[in-house]
Amino acid sequence: MKICIPSSGPEPGDLIDDRFGRAPYFIIHDTNNEKTESHRNDAAGGAGGVGPKAAQFLIRLGVDMVVTGRVGGNALEALKAGGIKVYLYEGRGPVREALKAALSGGLKEQ
């Protein structure tokens, strides 16, 4: 399973960015091989449609689950259309912490 966390930077130690579409990076952890990679979110600077654009990007990467604080209506709809589950995380710490919370299974699905 691939878990994606919107991040302010490319490293798991960087802070999460709680605005899904406008986050500069996505950090993706694959539970099958325990690998973590980061991708730049090229949609982040757009004037509009950033949520759906970011969602399309994640769909293509085969992401199964997004853990985030704030996600707009369009982006949520887009993620769901791509079969991606969205989990709410309200913490403001590093990506690593959010990932831990997601793996522990304690987060609520949106």
Binding site: G48, P52, E77, A78, K80, A81, G82
Partner: peptide, 18 residues
């Protein structure tokens, strides 16, 4: 070019405001 269309697993979503 405007992010108005998203192709999902089972449907295409259209965001008219874009």
């Amino acid at each position: 070019a405007f992010g108005a269309l998203l192709v999902g697993k089972d449907r295409v979503l259209f965001f008219p405001e874009q």
